[in-house]
Design a protein around this nucleic acid. Sequence first.
DNA 1: AAAATAAATGAACACTGTTTAAAATCTAAG
DNA 2: CTTAGATTTTAAACAGTGTTCATTTATTTT
Lengths: 205, 205
Amino acid sequence: MGIAERKEREKEELREQILTAAKSLFLKKGVEKTSIRNIADLIEYSPGSIYHYFKDKDEIFYSLHQGGFQQLMSRMLAINDLPHPLDRLKAMGSIYVHFALENPDMYDLMFIKEAPLDHVARTKALQWNEGEATFKFLRSTLKECMAEGHFQGHEEEALSFLIWSTVHGMVSLNIRRRCEVVLADRQDTIVKDGLDSFFTILDRL
Amino acid sequence: MGIAERKEREKEELREQILTAAKSLFLKKGVEKTSIRNIADLIEYSPGSIYHYFKDKDEIFYSLHQGGFQQLMSRMLAINDLPHPLDRLKAMGSIYVHFALENPDMYDLMFIKEAPLDHVARTKALQWNEGEATFKFLRSTLKECMAEGHFQGHEEEALSFLIWSTVHGMVSLNIRRRCEVVLADRQDTIVKDGLDSFFTILDRL
DNA sequence: AAAATAAATGAACACTGTTTAAAATCTAAG
DNA sequence: CTTAGATTTTAAACAGTGTTCATTTATTTT
């Protein structure tokens, strides 16, 4: 009896439809201005039906932000063949920054917005697998750098956090428009220049 | 005829009342969950009356965030007597981080939330005086450091941005709860440790 | 064909920011 | 002291929000 399987498949399909609709709307208008009714209109279902597939609005955007981490992670894994860990570390920084600037709304969801973390807090008792995996990847690369003698006198976890903070700081100031009003004239190059300065520091360290 | 003056004074008083009410509510519940009606209830006026004193909700929170910058700036100016610019630079970093962790909601409003910048974009044609003053203060201190021979091979504006980004990154990851789920065990010390690592880097640079 | 199960709906609830016509209050001139 | 004018304040309305739930519709099993 393949009926149960087909039903399961159909349910999964509609779930996917909701996510696709939500994503296209939120990339156009942002999370706040994407309403359940907007999503329902787009997939031609009633607003209430969405609650059979997602607990609440936060869960929808939590699901969406997972896709972002998959994308980011696959880009990161693509530079795993670089022989020197310090080169890998810098490449990860570049990838992180480029991902953020190319997908500002998705980055916002992943690292700035409260919606996905609100959902995490309410369900999985403070476990954020997506973020943890990304951070672990940075930590293991940094460990390799230190094994080669780089960054002496630094503690691995704190330095990992510092590096993450540096790239996050640059792109989040940019995304939340604190650059365009303070560095108006070189708004589009400042992140690249800042990153270059950062690489110079890492090389000398 | 002091009547006009008294009226002016009364108007200013009510404006201040609105701001005080808004501030106490937003520190308790956050910007999004502080409604115009909540503010109106607290000052015992009708919701509509608030619109005689502020154009919209964003303007209220723009006004509030200005107070935050005054606070931050006054703390910064207090270390102007330190003789060495590098010491001043590091003290500024400490002050910035402590301000953020002691006033997370205010920091959120100043450097993360979109509300104040939305208001800036809609009125003053992209001029953010509060943020600009703070950034200029960092830049002038960094210039003095470089005049003493520090940070050779770096460009002043880009490095200023990088330093700002580093401290902003650490506190904003903390405030938006990306630390507590990734660095649960040392959540309350990681920013301090990260900052120490950063100071070590600045010293060696 | 009837009973049981699952899915979808539309209306309702309690909110939100904002606008506006009307009412209330206060000031200034006659 | 009254009346005309200017402010200030209000209540009601508009169009929207997330979410819940009894009812209807559709599908599957007996």
